[in-house]
């Protein structure tokens, strides 16, 4: 990546500096700080709870520090406590194979994200850049799928996967997601609409095929939205719960959300294993955070960069 600096932003910045309205900027920073605080502070409570002992949480409800500091919750998440120890700590007696769940979650989220984003990009290209009869009708239909209440689809899809003999397999888990997500198509179409046709038309005059245009012009130019979309899709898939719960009951394909679901309240009127739940939340968010830390910079850069080869 050669030109990493976004011209737009740098210009705005420099013009800003010339004007004597620095208070405006500091005001803006205050707003950003508030937004960040609101977003992040609850996570302190998550951490504080994760480091607490369950039996002491309620008695120290207003204490800002961990109540009875203890790493037991994290041990539970990694399946390092015996069932008896876990129950004594206010956890459940369920066995946890953390690393297997992690592997399954990574596979599930990665496969569905990569595949859905790619196929959705293809479809979005057809909806935004190609001219064909019935295009808007078909697009409206696709868009409408976003409005189908999930209650409708879960059961028939479950039956379908079952009839294909794919229950408790990774393929069965990913299948409904790999072809597209309506959101991804919609999202990319909106971006493709905004792209200039000039280069595309020029390429066409040069005799380039649609396939080449798609791969060599459209995709590279949409790097930023594609990366954003991939990240958001990945997070969404990472947190997917109900479908994996239905289809991936088997230990071998159980994903993190389902495996760590045992920290929620297991019986009516019972309280959740709060510290375990919060530790699980932190630990399961970590891989996505790492992902963001690694690719976040790339996303920033590619967003500012809008070049063609």
């Amino acid at each position: 990546m050669t030109t990493t600096h976004a011209p737009a932003t740098s210009r705005v910045k420099s013009t800003r500096r010339r004007r004597p309205i620095n208070w405006r900027k500091s005001g803006a920073w205050v707003l950003v700080a508030i937004a960040v605080a609101v977003s992040v502070l609850p996570f302190y409570w998550v951490l504080r709870t994760a480091l607490s002992t369950n039996g002491s949480l309620a008695t120290n409800a207003s204490n800002l520090l961990p109540a009875d500091f203890n790493l037991g919750a994290f041990k539970r998440v990694f399946g390092l406590q015996s069932p008896e120890e876990a129950i004594a700590d206010g956890g459940s007696g369920a066995q946890i194979d953390f690393w297997i769940y992690l592997r399954n979650s990574v596979l599930f989220a990665a496969i569905t994200t990569a595949s859905a984003v790619f196929f959705s990009a293809m479809a979005a290209y057809a909806f935004a850049r190609l001219r064909w009869r019935g295009r808007n009708v078909v697009f409206s239909l696709f868009l409408a799928t976003m409005m189908v209440p999930p209650i409708f689809t879960a059961l028939p899809n479950f039956l379908l996967i079952k009839n294909m003999g794919l229950l408790n397999s990774m393929l069965g888990l990913v299948l409904p997601y790999i072809f597209m997500t309506p959101f991804a198509i919609f999202f990319l179409r909106q971006f493709f609409l905004n792209m200039s046709r000039e280069v595309e038309e020029a390429a066409k005059l040069d005799g380039a095929s649609h396939l080449r245009i798609f791969f060599q012009i459209i995709l590279p130019n949409a790097a930023a939205p594609l990366a954003t979309l991939a990240l958001l899709t990945f997070i969404g898939q990472w947190n997917e719960y109900f479908w994996p719960l239905l289809v991936g009951q088997d230990e071998s394909v159980r994903v993190l959300t389902v495996g760590l679901g045992v920290f929620k309240s297991q019986s009516p009127q019972g309280a959740p294993d709060w510290s375990g739940l919060m530790a699980a939340t932190l630990v399961s968010a970590l891989p996505v955070l790492i992902l963001f830390a690694i690719f976040g910079k790339k996303i920033v850069n590619s967003i500012g960069f809008s070049g063609i080869k």
Binding site: S92, G93, L246, Q249, G261, V262, K264, S265, Q266
Partner: peptide
């Protein structure tokens, strides 16, 4: 197999 009360009946019905 153990699954919490909130998920139990839904998955059973399925």
């Amino acid at each position: 197999t153990q699954r919490g009360w909130d998920d139990y009946w839904g998955t059973l019905t399925n």
